[in-house]
Design a protein around this nucleic acid. Structure first.
Lengths: 359, 359
DNA sequence: TTGTAAGCGTTATCAC
DNA sequence: GTGATAACGCTTACAA
């Protein structure tokens, strides 16, 4: 077996000595200068079809792949996309990663992940250092990190392109991908009203979160439409955690006239409310309807399966990549560039919603 | 000219012209050669305390940070750690990312994430291309990807250090971090037996997964210890998905004499079994005890909360980083280097386990 | 122990 | 259109 040699020496196109061929090898073989090869690599317009073809043939023949480290040094820019997040929800982050990877898989880009601590007072310094060191082509900001304007300004300042992902538009269109949380929540609540629910509880997200505000506004808008005026006790504050759902559920379901339905600002809290209902022997959905938001794995794993709202995460990730680095992606991908940057979330009906008792 | 600058021109230690200071600036200021500065950066042993101090002062004064791109080119190696995974479980992947980041946060390393498709026949080529291009310092392989010996061989071949994370040792100690799945499962089942359970069902993981095999062996070992001999119908095959749990639950709970407890090889399947129980009006844990594995978010979100097994993911991640790149981490971190590379999983008792009916 | 010269593999400048 | 030549910022020989 020829496999005796050490290191990567197989596969087509290793240059002499078992090393990767360099731009020099290509230039020599094609009988042109390295700059010309460079032009071919970088798709310069000023090239004869003939030379381009010659060079491309040599590249092909040698199996030449430009060295990203050298390019990074010369370009003063790394062929990376940075994903900055504050771990909002594991599934969301991972789905997003997948989407981005799908979008860039045929390019030379790679994905650099950076979890940060939103609360830290060194946040900006951390991110600055990170971006200055890694010099990515662009950065993606996931919610709720994306709501931080200073972070966006920092990217701008450092010359790093960026896209913010969120529940509503919060920047120039070219820097923002958002969903229509408000509208889809209103739609879900309208459904509840149509089923006959009149006493509907709401579990808010944490203060200061754009997503929380948007969802609440959607909820209130639907109530107003229906001419419903609910007591303040029907509005519970949460922090997107399961335990907050437990607390909210305890409060809501201990009321003398409890709600017949509860809209929760995310699935985790909805799971908490559902647990409380089970504990109290309240039938879901017969006696209590519950709706969540996120369509997390939890939504399908709990019983009964939770009706919820699905963010088009992967689509958002793909669009974000297209917006961020169109020139690095396939022409096909680029073509999608002029679509809207507001992507629609959808209501997912499952088993946790039914008409109120007595209807 | 200084006013004209675009981009980062503030902060301490920008060199002349608003640019980042380079090794040359440091050398000039310290009155030494760039090589000496380089030695300081790379912690060479052959240096006078005095020169080192001088250089370090200059570095400090200038706020000099070595350019990673240039280092990568010269070193022929990028200061990155690659995380290769096949999306086993979002929470697991993310927790692992966090652990790695924690371990490397004070170093110059960054984390490159690469989800791959385990089933693809281009897997090896994909990974090879990825590693050849990115040239990371090292790679981490998450299960079940870590079970692929070819992948490990590829890393070896490419001179990329690697660590495999898994349910049992599957390589040299220096390349492997594992948990003790078999033992902890046996322990959990012993607990069931101690409570009085005699008819215990088992939901397997998918064929070909090391984790699935380990867990099953632990289960069988505990049965043997207790002198229990269960019918074949008590063993259901699953694929780690919720729907497989549903199917297994349907099968197990429709038996003429159904089990009084079920051990599921992961939480998702346990959630499926639990849903079936709820649907059939079987009380959990009163009439049926259920145990899962993973301690995923689902385990706490379902009702009743699931007793399960917790992998020490973050610890594994940290250990993996320490094993992979000790020379890049703090001396403190290095010190931990000679500990065991088998980390203990723990059984987490929650509300889904109780004595069987009639005890 | 420290310095000099020659890369590492690419792109930018500016002639031709 | 194309090609010398000098960056890019750092490291590895090899001297001194």
């Amino acid at each position: 077996m020829a496999a005796q040699d050490k290191g990567p020496s197989r596969g087509p196109g290793r240059g002499p000595g078992g090393k990767q061929p360099t731009i020099n090898d290509v230039a020599a073989l094609a009988g042109v200068s390295k700059k010309t090869v460079s032009r071919v690599i970088n798709r310069s317009e000023f090239l004869t079809e003939k030379t381009r073809a010659t060079v491309e043939k040599a590249i092909e023949q040698l199996g030449f792949v430009p060295n990203p480290q050298a390019r990074a040094l010369a370009f003063r820019r790394n062929f990376l996309i940075a994903l900055l997040h504050d771990n909002p929800n594991a599934q969301t982050v991972l789905n997003f990663q997948r989407g981005v990877l799908d979008a860039i898989k045929d390019s030379d880009l790679a994905l650099l992940v950076r979890p940060v601590d939103r609360g830290s007072d060194k946040l900006l310094d951390d991110v600055r250092t990170f971006l200055e060191k890694q010099r990515p082509i662009g950065a993606m900001l996931l919610p709720p990190l994306s709501e931080n304007d200073d972070l966006a300004a920092l990217c701008e300042d450092l010359g790093v392109r960026y896209v913010r992902i969120g529940s509503a538009r919060m920047d120039d269109a070219k820097h923002c991908i958002s969903s229509n949380d408000r509208e889809v929540v209103a739609e879900a609540v309208r459904g509840l009203v149509a089923l006959g629910h009149r006493r509907i509880g709401f579990v808010r997200g944490p203060a200061g979160f754009r997503s929380a505000a948007e969802r609440e506004e959607g909820f209130r808008a639907a109530l107003a439409e229906a001419g419903l005026d609910l007591p303040a006790e029907f509005f519970a504050r949460g922090n997107y955690r399961y335990t907050a759902g437990i607390e909210a559920g305890e409060a809501l379901l201990s009321l003398s006239t409890p709600p017949t339905a509860v809209f929760c600002s995310n699935d985790e809290m909805a799971a908490g409310v559902m647990s409380v209902a089970h504990g109290k022997g309240i039938k879901v959905p017969g006696e209590l309807s519950i709706i969540g938001f996120d369509d997390s794995p939890t939504a399908t794993h709990i019983w009964p399966a939770l009706s919820t709202v699905r963010w088009p995460i992967r689509e958002m990730a793909i669009r974000a990549a297209q917006m961020l680095v169109p020139d690095f992606l396939d022409p096909g991908a680029k073509a999608a560039g002029d679509e809207s940057n507001v992507l629609a979330s959808t209501f997912v009906a499952r088993q946790s919603v039914a008409p109120p008792p007595g209807r």
